[in-house]
Design a protein around this nucleic acid. Structure first.
Lengths: 203, 203, 203, 203
DNA sequence: CGTTAACCGAGACGGTACGTCTGGTCTTTAA
DNA sequence: TTAAAGACCAGACGTACCGTCTCGGTTAACG
């Protein structure tokens, strides 16, 4: 069962890669707002139509670029949730801190949410971009949610813990710091966070 | 000691209000990107110079607008942290859900982060806007942090709880949902969140 | 002696007609500049290649369309040049006035040269289109030039009259009005024109 | 009585000239279709907005350029209409022949209507451009129409001659040759034309 | 009371990205 | 070879917006 017998000239696969490569490079150099679609097309040696046929908007393109550099964080339940979570969150923190610097000529210490905020904004502007972003995060966090599930079954976590909510608390705190309060995020903070979430606040 | 003896024609106070009013209205109608400074000036019957003298950037203006509609959430320790927290978070949730609709013609249910993401992005773009946003949130949350402090002294919370971290977990989860996963936020979710954070996940 | 032994799949004759029909319709609806080759192909249910194989340029296509709707104006010397000329010129005027409306949604009276000017421009751009246009006009006016010749031989016109020059004066005036001054052209004007040309201006 | 008390920053007069200069140069080099508004703006060192504020369309701009290089042809009644007309028409012919070459890299002899046709087409596309073109020609030919009037009063022309119609015959023939038949136009042709129009064709 | 510094309104300006459109060519598969 | 479909290149177009600047004119407070 052929899905659809393709008609007409097929898309040049090579173009996709060339565009995304060029876009990534430009994004790292210039950040979101000095990033120009024309320039991407030029750098990728591709006509603008070819680009716009694939990503109908600057926002779409940028999200595609970001999705592409999202590295899988391998994570497997080791029998010690605390250690697993800490390791995983630190990976995320590293990624976020890298993104903070995007487009800043000087690696200045002026805590900035850089790309992440722009991606969130793009997701807010276009429904389809939003869906893509959500899918990206869902895929990324699927493993860690499974892990939490396993830890619960294994008896390390209370049986009434909801993995989704627990993870929201942890990841949320990181993004909150990044996007809203702008305070620094480091390994020590991750530790305190995990401790707090596992221990609970009530006396 | 007068800060600076003003010379020349004083600014027209009325203009500030007219501009912010117009800006708010436009923001609610159009959302961030179809919001144009020219249009604000026109609607406020004010010259663009008058506007730019006060807010040097579209981003500055928008943050000023948002700061203005941030209502103080009065909160006082009642002896029951759980209830106090729940109430406070629900207030925030209401505010966020209102913002979600900004710029959407139809009040469609397509979960959008609307303004919040744009403000975060603006904060990421300009250092001073970032500072203003952080100050806004700091001011807003000062009361609840004090409240957590009191609850700890009162023995309702463990003595090693860090109010800042605890609050990050709670507020963070909300913003994470809003900005990243796009999933709905309601009172039931707030309940589960507070329960989780107070109880802790460890068996 | 076959000119060239055809090999491969023969051209679909039907396509020519379908394309010209579609092109004509589109031309009447939209005028020259909103006329797009892609749209013609779509409307004719024909691939763009099929179209370009026949007419290598938008201009070529349009001239082909115009040539097709040029109706032969039968004319024969009746012994009364003035009457013959008047009738012939009125036919031309009718055609021109029809063309004036091309591409105007409302049949407004805003005298426009419509298609004619575009065809002239096309002729100016491509040498071969120019040749085609000239041939079209030559073919069209051959009869009336012969007629003038006959009238001269018959003694109705001075023996030193050059039919070509005389006809230039008459047809030229019409096109000049159409393309340059934009003033209206009607039967009364044709009358005055013929009178002037036959009578002469000198006292 | 001030026509209008000017408000706001006045337009930079210098810009108009710089744009028209650049546009003219480009037009002479490239002809109509390789003429690009972007390039004009760049060459004139002017923002595209500045240009579009003055001429809302490529066509408008080009007509403005052409209008600017329309030199006044001084003409005064000398008592000899034939001579006056001949001189005037030859001036026009020179101008037309110059325009024929516009945009042709090589001064090839391939008779082309060049710019004139494009201007006529532009006039046909936009009502306001059409009006401008007609005004341009009206202004240009006002003198010669007056001259014909004087010649008639002076008894050189028949009293029932309509100057407008007579001039249509003459100028029209030139434009007809240029735009339609593409045949060459020279002094000899002008002579035959004037002779024909003054003498009349009837035996 | 005049000077002066800073304001206000209107609107042009520079700069630049955006996304669209079109013309004309090329690459597939199928007939 | 032609056809159909549609991707491709190239590049112009006109729009939108931001933030600055230039006018003419106004409004306080200072001297």
């Amino acid at each position: 069962m052929q899905p659809t017998a393709r008609r007409g000239r097929p898309r040049k696969q090579e173009a996709d890669a060339r565009i995304l490569d060029a876009a990534l490079e430009l994004l790292l150099d210039c950040g979101y707002d000095r990033f120009s679609v024309d320039e991407v097309a030029a750098k990728a040696q591709v006509a603008k139509t070819t680009l716009y046929r694939r990503w109908p908007t600057k926002d779409h393109l940028i999200v595609a670029v970001v999705a592409r550099i999202q590295d899988e964080v391998p994570v497997e339940y080791s029998g010690d949730v605390r250690a697993d979570l800490t390791r995983y969150l630190n990976e995320i923190v590293n990624g976020l801190n890298r993104m903070r610097q995007v487009g800043r000529a000087t690696a200045s210490g002026d805590a900035s949410a850089g790309l992440v905020a722009e991606v969130a904004a793009a997701a807010a502007r276009h429904a389809d971009v939003g869906a893509a972003v959500q899918a990206m995060f869902a895929r990324r966090n699927a493993l860690v949610l499974t892990l939490l599930e396993q830890a619960r079954e294994h008896g390390e976590l209370r049986s009434d813990v909801e993995p989704g909510v627990l993870f929201d608390q942890l990841a949320g705190a990181l993004y909150y710091r990044l996007l809203v309060t702008g305070r620094p995020i480091d390994a020590a903070y991750v530790d305190r966070l995990v401790t707090g979430a596992l221990t609970g606040a009530s006396a």
